[in-house]
C-alpha cells in the first residue's frame, strides 16, 4: 500500500514539475503564438544552473558554490531567461518558423555542450553532489517526498495564478492580439516585437523553474534529461490538454505523463524482450499518434481556449 502511495506521490511530483514547463510553453505558444522548439534547453538551463550554483564542490567540473537553495533556483531561472533573451533578440524579428528552427538549434547545441564540456557540466556523467534542502533533517525519504510534492504543487499553483492574472489583463489581451494578427496590432499602435520578447523570456524562465525543481528532485542532472524527447513531451501535453488554456495544460501534463510511464511499464512487463529494446521508440510513436489523433479530431485540445479572457 505504502509502495503504491509512494509511487503515486512520485508520479504526481514529476507531473506537476512538467506541468510548470507546459504552462511556460502555453504562455509562448498558446497565448502569443511563439513556436519554441527547444523547450529542453530552457528547462535544462534551470536544472544545470541550480546544481552548478547550489551543489557541493566536485573534482571534475566547476560549480559547487553551495548557494542558499532559493538563490540557486532563481539563478537557474535567470540563466534560462538570459538564454531566451539572447535567442529572442536575435530571432524575434524574424518570422515564426525561424524562431522554431533557432530554438531547436539552441536545444541541440545546449545538449551537446552539456555532454561534451566536462569542465562545465560533468559531461555525459552529469552533475551530482547536490544536497537537497532539509533532506538531512527529514530522515524518512517517504516524508521528504511528500513534502517535496507539496512544494512542487505549491509552485505549480503559484505559476498558474500568476499566468491567469497575466492573461486576463490588458497584457494578455495584447499577447493574443499579436498572435491573431500582428499587422492589425501594429495598426493600433502596438509594438509586437517587444511584447513577444517579454512573453518569450517569461515563458522560458518558467521552464527554467521547472528544470530547477526537476534537478532538485533527482539531486542530479545529465544530458539525458535535456534530450529533444522532453521538448516533444511538453508539446504533446500542451496540444492534448488544450493550447491557450492553462488548466488544459496541467491536465495534459498529467495525462501524457501517465500514458508515457504506463506504456513504459507495460512494455517492460508484457512485451517480448526483443521489443523492449525499442521501448523509447514505441513510446514516441504512441505519443505521436495521440498528437495526430488530437489534431484531427479535437485540435482545440481537451480543454479549449476560452473566448472571453480579458474584458
Amino acid at each position: 500500500m505504502i509502495g503504491l502511495i509512494s509511487y503515486l506521490v512520485f508520479f504526481a511530483t514529476v507531473s506537476s514539475i512538467l506541468a510548470i514547463a507546459v504552462l511556460g510553453l502555453n504562455l509562448q505558444w498558446g497565448n502569443t503564438g511563439l513556436f519554441n522548439g527547444g523547450v529542453a534547453a530552457f528547462f535544462g538551463a534551470g536544472a544545470y544552473g541550480l546544481i552548478l550554483l547550489g551543489g557541493t564542490v566536485q573534482a571534475d567540473h566547476i560549480g559547487g558554490f553551495e548557494l542558499f537553495y532559493p538563490v540557486a533556483l532563481v539563478g537557474g531561472i535567470l540563466l534560462s531567461g538570459l538564454i531566451a533573451l539572447v535567442v529572442g533578440m536575435l530571432t524575434i524579428r524574424l518570422r515564426r518558423d525561424y524562431l522554431a528552427i533557432a530554438t531547436f538549434g539552441v536545444a541541440v547545441a545546449f545538449e551537446n555542450l552539456m555532454r561534451n564540456a566536462e569542465w562545465l557540466s560533468g559531461g555525459a556523467q552529469g552533475m551530482r553532489g547536490f544536497e537537497r534542502p532539509f533532506e538531512d533533517s527529514i530522515a524518512d525519504p517517504f516524508v521528504f517526498n511528500i513534502i517535496f510534492f507539496c512544494f512542487s504543487v505549491l509552485l505549480l499553483l503559484g505559476v498558474y495564478l500568476f499566468l491567469e492574472k497575466l492573461i486576463r489583463s490588458p497584457f494578455g489581451r495584447l499577447l493574443r492580439a499579436i498572435r491573431e494578427d500582428e499587422v492589425a496590432a501594429k495598426s493600433l499602435g502596438k509594438a509586437p516585437n517587444r511584447v513577444r520578447l517579454t512573453a518569450f523570456v517569461v515563458g522560458s524562465m518558467i521552464m527554467g523553474l521547472a528544470g530547477g525543481l526537476y534537478a532538485t528532485f533527482y539531486a542530479f542532472v545529465s544530458p539525458q534529461d535535456v534530450l529533444p524527447t522532453l521538448t516533444f513531451q511538453i508539446w504533446a501535453m500542451l496540444i492534448v490538454g488544450g493550447s491557450g488554456n492553462n488548466q488544459g495544460g496541467i491536465l495534459g501534463a498529467f495525462l501524457i505523463w501517465a500514458a508515457w510511464t504506463a506504456s513504459g511499464w507495460m512494455l517492460s512487463k508484457f512485451a517480448p524482450i526483443e521489443a523492449q529494446l525499442y521501448t523509447g521508440t514505441l513510446q514516441y510513436i504512441m505519443i505521436g499518434m495521440i498528437i495526430v489523433g488530437m489534431l484531427l479530431w479535437r485540435p482545440q485540445g481537451l480543454l479549449p481556449e476560452k473566448l472571453i479572457v480579458s474584458q
Binding site: E180, L188, Q311
Partner: peptide, 12 residues
C-alpha cells in the same frame, strides 16, 4: 483578432 471577443477587439 478572430479568436478574441468583439469587445476585447475594441478595448485593445
Amino acid at each position: 483578432f478572430k479568436k478574441m471577443s468583439v469587445l476585447e477587439n475594441v478595448m485593445i
